[in-house]
Protein backbone atom coordinates (compact mmCIF):
# COMPACT_ATOMS: atom_id res chain seq x y z
CA UNK A 1 0.00 0.00 0.00
CA UNK A 2 1.43 3.35 -1.04
CA UNK A 3 1.70 6.18 1.44
CA UNK A 4 -1.03 8.20 -0.33
CA UNK A 5 -3.36 5.22 -0.11
CA UNK A 6 -2.50 4.77 3.55
CA UNK A 7 -3.20 8.45 4.27
CA UNK A 8 -6.50 8.28 2.47
CA UNK A 9 -7.46 5.35 4.66
CA UNK A 10 -6.85 7.45 7.76
CA UNK A 11 -9.67 9.72 6.61
CA UNK A 12 -12.24 6.94 6.48
CA UNK A 13 -14.87 7.52 9.11
CA UNK A 14 -14.80 11.29 8.64
CA UNK A 15 -17.99 12.91 7.43
CA UNK A 16 -17.96 14.43 3.96
CA UNK A 17 -18.10 17.86 5.55
CA UNK A 18 -15.02 17.11 7.66
CA UNK A 19 -13.30 15.82 4.59
CA UNK A 20 -13.72 19.18 2.88
CA UNK A 21 -11.86 21.07 5.62
CA UNK A 22 -8.09 21.22 5.10
CA UNK A 23 -7.23 22.02 8.73
CA UNK A 24 -9.25 19.04 10.01
CA UNK A 25 -7.47 16.70 7.63
CA UNK A 26 -4.06 18.18 8.43
CA UNK A 27 -4.75 17.71 12.13
CA UNK A 28 -5.62 14.08 11.59
CA UNK A 29 -2.42 13.47 9.63
CA UNK A 30 -0.32 15.32 12.18
CA UNK A 31 -1.81 13.19 14.99
CA UNK A 32 -1.28 9.93 13.11
CA UNK A 33 2.28 10.49 11.86
CA UNK A 34 3.62 13.15 14.19
CA UNK A 35 4.21 15.31 11.13
CA UNK A 36 2.64 16.07 7.76
CA UNK A 37 4.37 14.19 4.94
CA UNK A 38 4.58 15.96 1.54
CA UNK A 39 2.30 13.28 0.05
CA UNK A 40 -0.42 14.11 2.55
CA UNK A 41 -0.59 17.66 1.20
CA UNK A 42 -1.38 16.30 -2.25
CA UNK A 43 -3.95 13.85 -0.92
CA UNK A 44 -5.65 16.68 0.98
CA UNK A 45 -5.57 18.97 -2.06
CA UNK A 46 -7.25 16.21 -4.04
CA UNK A 47 -9.94 15.58 -1.42
CA UNK A 48 -10.79 19.21 -0.75
CA UNK A 49 -10.47 20.33 -4.36
CA UNK A 50 -8.22 23.19 -3.24
CA UNK A 51 -4.90 24.03 -4.90
CA UNK A 52 -1.85 22.37 -3.37
CA UNK A 53 -0.27 25.81 -2.87
CA UNK A 54 -3.11 26.80 -0.55
CA UNK A 55 -2.94 23.55 1.44
CA UNK A 56 0.76 24.18 1.92
CA UNK A 57 -0.10 27.71 3.00
CA UNK A 58 -2.35 26.39 5.77
CA UNK A 59 0.11 23.68 6.78
CA UNK A 60 2.96 26.15 7.16
CA UNK A 61 0.87 28.86 8.81
CA UNK A 62 0.04 27.00 11.99
CA UNK A 63 2.78 25.99 14.40
CA UNK A 64 0.81 22.86 15.31
CA UNK A 65 1.62 21.32 11.94
CA UNK A 66 5.12 20.24 11.13
CA UNK A 67 6.28 19.28 7.67
CA UNK A 68 9.27 17.45 9.04
CA UNK A 69 9.31 14.39 11.30
CA UNK A 70 9.63 15.39 14.95
CA UNK A 71 11.23 13.70 17.89
CA UNK A 72 9.31 11.67 20.48
CA UNK A 73 8.85 14.86 22.50
CA UNK A 74 8.34 18.41 21.28
CA UNK A 75 9.31 21.52 23.21
CA UNK A 76 7.91 24.74 21.80
CA UNK A 77 9.26 27.96 23.19
CA UNK A 78 7.14 31.06 22.74
CA UNK A 79 8.94 34.05 21.22
CA UNK A 80 5.88 36.29 21.09
CA UNK A 81 6.04 39.88 22.28
CA UNK A 82 5.06 39.32 25.91
CA UNK A 83 7.35 36.31 26.29
CA UNK A 84 10.13 38.19 24.56
CA UNK A 85 9.87 40.95 27.14
CA UNK A 86 10.06 38.28 29.83
CA UNK A 87 13.35 36.94 28.54
CA UNK A 88 12.18 34.20 26.15
CA UNK A 89 15.27 34.68 24.04
CA UNK A 90 17.55 33.63 26.88
CA UNK A 91 15.37 30.61 27.55
CA UNK A 92 15.60 29.64 23.93
CA UNK A 93 19.38 29.92 23.92
CA UNK A 94 19.56 27.87 27.10
CA UNK A 95 17.38 25.15 25.58
CA UNK A 96 19.53 25.12 22.48
CA UNK A 97 22.67 24.63 24.48
CA UNK A 98 21.13 22.03 26.81
CA UNK A 99 19.80 20.04 23.87
CA UNK A 100 22.83 20.77 21.73
CA UNK A 101 20.60 21.51 18.79
CA UNK A 102 19.23 24.51 16.97
CA UNK A 103 15.66 25.71 17.10
CA UNK A 104 13.62 23.87 14.49
CA UNK A 105 15.80 20.78 14.81
CA UNK A 106 15.63 17.46 16.62
CA UNK A 107 18.29 16.18 19.02
CA UNK A 108 20.72 13.65 17.66
CA UNK A 109 19.09 10.81 19.58
CA UNK A 110 15.78 11.70 17.94
CA UNK A 111 14.05 12.23 21.27
CA UNK A 112 13.42 15.95 21.55
CA UNK A 113 12.47 18.53 18.93
CA UNK A 114 12.88 22.20 19.77
CA UNK A 115 10.59 24.66 18.00
CA UNK A 116 9.71 28.29 18.46
CA UNK A 117 6.16 29.60 18.30
CA UNK A 118 4.70 33.09 18.21
CA UNK A 119 2.28 33.93 20.99
CA UNK A 120 0.15 31.01 22.02
CA UNK A 121 -2.41 33.23 23.67
CA UNK A 122 -1.53 33.11 27.35
CA UNK A 123 0.74 36.12 27.61
CA UNK A 124 -0.27 36.66 31.24
CA UNK A 125 1.78 33.58 32.03
CA UNK A 126 4.84 34.66 30.06
CA UNK A 127 7.42 33.31 29.48
CA UNK A 128 5.74 30.18 28.18
CA UNK A 129 6.90 26.83 26.87
CA UNK A 130 4.66 24.10 25.49
CA UNK A 131 5.82 20.57 26.16
CA UNK A 132 4.07 17.89 24.14
CA UNK A 133 1.03 20.12 23.81
CA UNK A 134 0.94 21.06 27.50
CA UNK A 135 1.49 24.70 28.37
CA UNK A 136 3.88 25.63 31.14
CA UNK A 137 3.83 29.26 32.19
CA UNK A 138 6.20 31.53 34.16
CA UNK A 139 9.09 29.29 33.32
CA UNK A 140 12.31 29.92 35.17
CA UNK A 141 15.58 29.28 33.39
CA UNK A 142 16.61 26.84 36.13
CA UNK A 143 13.59 24.64 35.47
CA UNK A 144 14.74 23.79 31.97
CA UNK A 145 17.36 21.23 32.85
CA UNK A 146 15.10 19.04 35.04
CA UNK A 147 12.37 19.39 32.45
CA UNK A 148 14.59 17.91 29.77
CA UNK A 149 15.83 15.21 32.14
CA UNK A 150 12.24 14.16 32.80
CA UNK A 151 11.52 13.91 29.10
CA UNK A 152 14.60 11.77 28.51
CA UNK A 153 13.76 9.28 31.25
Amino acid sequence: MGISEEIRNKFKGLTSEERSRPATLLKRVQAEYGYVPEDALEVIAGLTGLPLSQIKGVATFYASFSLRPRGTHVIQICQGTACHVKGAKRLKERLESLLNTETGQTTEDGIITLEEVRCIGCCNRAPVVVVDGRTKGRINIRELEPLIRDLRD
Partner: peptide, 20 residues
Protein backbone atom coordinates in the same frame (compact mmCIF):
# COMPACT_ATOMS: atom_id res chain seq x y z
CA UNK B 1 -2.70 28.54 -8.29
CA UNK B 2 0.71 26.97 -8.57
CA UNK B 3 2.20 29.50 -6.16
CA UNK B 4 0.95 30.62 -2.77
CA UNK B 5 2.04 32.17 0.50
CA UNK B 6 3.82 29.93 2.99
CA UNK B 7 4.63 30.39 6.68
CA UNK B 8 3.92 33.62 8.48
CA UNK B 9 5.46 36.57 10.24
CA UNK B 10 9.02 37.25 9.22
CA UNK B 11 9.20 33.87 7.48
CA UNK B 12 6.30 34.58 5.14
CA UNK B 13 7.22 33.99 1.53
CA UNK B 14 5.75 33.09 -1.83
CA UNK B 15 6.52 29.55 -2.80
CA UNK B 16 5.46 26.76 -5.11
CA UNK B 17 5.10 23.30 -3.55
CA UNK B 18 7.06 20.76 -5.59
CA UNK B 19 3.93 18.80 -6.40
CA UNK B 20 2.35 21.79 -8.10
Amino acid sequence: SVIGFVSRGSERAVDAPIGS
